[in-house]
Design a protein around this nucleic acid. Structure first.
Lengths: 161, 161
DNA sequence: CGCTTGCCTGGAGTGCACTCGAACTCTCTA
DNA sequence: TAGAGAGTTCGAGTGCACTCCAGGCAAGCG
């Protein structure tokens, strides 16, 4: 049981590096517009690992990535746009399976427009709910942190006296 | 003690398995304040499964649950309050390992107040970031849904004409 | 020429958060 | 007194989303 044997409560003052937003992830921006990016460039500018990028393709989450004459992937700006959308959907909690479904609909063309709209609309509802949840938790956190803060200040005052 | 101890077997005509938020989950409310709830009552009013409740205890996420004379769990209102907090932290994406750490700090008493405050404060920052992310995605969704809606209306108009 | 670097594939492995199964006990009702 | 039903434990299994590995190919450099 992994949780049981977790490490001895490190006092982690440092940022855990792994937690980051879509915005933070695109820290390297796109290389100037050549429209043919290698997999590692894409990994760099999306924050996804090369493994994940290949995996996305395998499971049908990418709309066919072009290849160089030696068979290496060459991503286009369109691909990056798509990855940006995928990243957002993922960060907002859409399951990969649903994103794959959406990708399939896009491949299938015009006649799936209505279903795509439904899918995104449903997800938007989901996101709205999540925002509400987060906000209500924020209140609880504010309340508790307040209590802790007060207790601490009282303790510090007592010590100082 | 035996008769008093047993639960009145709530007539649950309704429970079609849960997919839902903390708010929705507590659909059955707490049974009137007896302050000694069986595991299935707690499962019912928190939306967690009995398996999950036992698992939480095993991994140290619960502050020692009381037992009946036959060794069955008897949850108190305090336990339910704790589960409510845990549910919120979970829904806002705190890893179980962190919640276990927090639970340990609570067990350890007063001298961990400062660290608990730090932990919650860090999480609050996290939650704020997530809200911002969700909101920015909401804009993208609005935009795309708009496009789809327009396309659909155009198609419908063409068909109608 | 050999070495390094970067990429390729298919398949296996990992970590998290549950979720379930097997074998058992206890209490109540028919 | 037999059976249903709710509870117990510990360990194993599941599903998701990656993450890594072995083995191999192609290009550039000293």
């Amino acid at each position: 049981m992994t949780v049981l044997d977790t490490a001895p409560a490190v006092v982690d003052t440092t940022p855990p590096a792994a937690v980051c937003t879509v915005l933070e992830r695109q820290r390297h921006g796109r290389p100037p517009g050549r429209d043919r990016y290698t997999i590692s460039e894409v990994a760099d500018c999306t924050g996804l690992s090369v493994h994940t990028l290949r995996w996305y393709e395998r499971i049908g989450l990418m709309p066919h990535v072009d290849r160089s004459h030696t068979g290496q992937r060459r991503y286009t700006d369109r691909d990056l746009d798509w990855l940006d959308l995928v990243g957002r959907l993922r960060l907002t909690g859409m399951p990969v399976a649903d994103m794959v479904r959406y990708a399939r609909l896009v491949r299938e063309g015009e006649h799936t427009l209505a279903e795509r709209e439904r899918l995104l609309t449903a997800h938007r509802e989901d996101v709205r709910k999540r925002i509400a949840e987060l906000r209500s938790t924020l209140e609880v956190l504010d309340y508790k942190i307040d209590i802790y803060g007060e207790a601490r200040r009282r303790a510090e005052a007592a010590e100082g006296a």
